[in-house]
């Protein structure tokens, strides 16, 4: 029962993930969304440690199915905030598989952090776009690579981190998970990873590429770019140090 509660609230698995995503949609402030995506899984890992129950065999299977389900759903989502929420749900489901392999609590915390930071940053980027256009829909304001070059550059880097591109921590996390899994689970995780990549490129095509429609829009301030870039660089370097030695 305790595990189910954790699955419902903090490390969401479908269909218990629906309240989690409904909450993210309901929250309007990007800062609060950022905090929820970042903190909820950490609390989930703490709760798992506190409950200290062995994870039954059926739970990793459920987690994989949930991760795959949300990955497929990502393909047709155009709202950047919702996209980030679905990606977080899909990625955080993998924490259960890592936990089932008997990972240490600290490793689990880092694992969850590595997978939740990029979607959390996407929440902030979505907020920036909503402030300028009233909405953050892919394809609605295409060609932002020309209109908002700084914002687009940061979006590209964050999406690359979110879809576990080397050498971001997500890559080593997924690789570590796959290397310890049996081959059917490994194949399923790789399928989820493939769909993330597909969804990520669809998102970039909807926002960054195409002909610029807007003439006068304020781009991200250089200070904000420095903060985002610094955070991503730290994330990358920390990931290389902490998760670089996958095996």
């Amino acid at each position: 029962m305790a595990l189910l509660l954790i699955a419902c609230l903090l490390l969401p698995l479908f269909p218990l993930s629906m309240p989690f995503n409904a909450l993210l949609n309901w929250l309007k402030r990007p800062g609060i969304r950022f905090a929820v995506v970042l903190i909820a899984p950490q609390l989930g890992v703490l709760a798992l440690d506190y409950v200290a129950q062995p994870i039954p065999d059926w739970l990793p299977v459920w987690a994989l199915a949930s991760a795959a389900f949300y990955a497929i759903r990502l393909l047709s989502v155009r709202d950047l905030g919702m996209w980030a929420g679905f990606l977080a749900t899909s990625a955080l489901a993998l924490v259960w598989i890592f936990a089932a392999e008997g990972a240490a609590p600290l490793d689990l915390h880092l694992f969850a952090f590595g997978l939740s930071l990029p979607p959390a940053l996407l929440m902030l980027l979505a907020g920036t776009l909503v402030r300028r256009f009233g909405a953050a829909y892919a394809g609605l304001h295409g060609g932002l690579g020309r209109c908002l070059p700084r914002w687009s550059r940061i979006l590209i880097w964050v999406v690359l981190a979110a879809i576990a591109t080397p050498v971001f921590p997500g890559f080593f996390i997924v690789l570590g998970l796959v290397f310890d899994a049996r081959w059917p689970s490994a194949a399923a995780i790789l399928f989820v990873w493939l769909i993330w990549s597909w969804a990520g490129t669809r998102l970039l095509q909807g926002f960054v590429f195409d002909i610029c429609q807007q003439v006068e829009v304020r781009d991200l301030r250089p200070a904000a770019v420095a903060v985002y870039s610094g955070a991503l660089a730290l994330f990358l370097i920390a990931g290389l140090i902490v998760t670089g030695g996958v095996l």
Binding site: P15, I72, S76, V77
Partner: peptide
């Protein structure tokens, strides 16, 4: 695949 994705999202009310 994209149609399946949309159908899944409609069934689960986009959450």
């Amino acid at each position: 695949v994209l149609a399946v994705s949309k159908r899944f999202n409609i069934w689960s009310r986009w959450v």
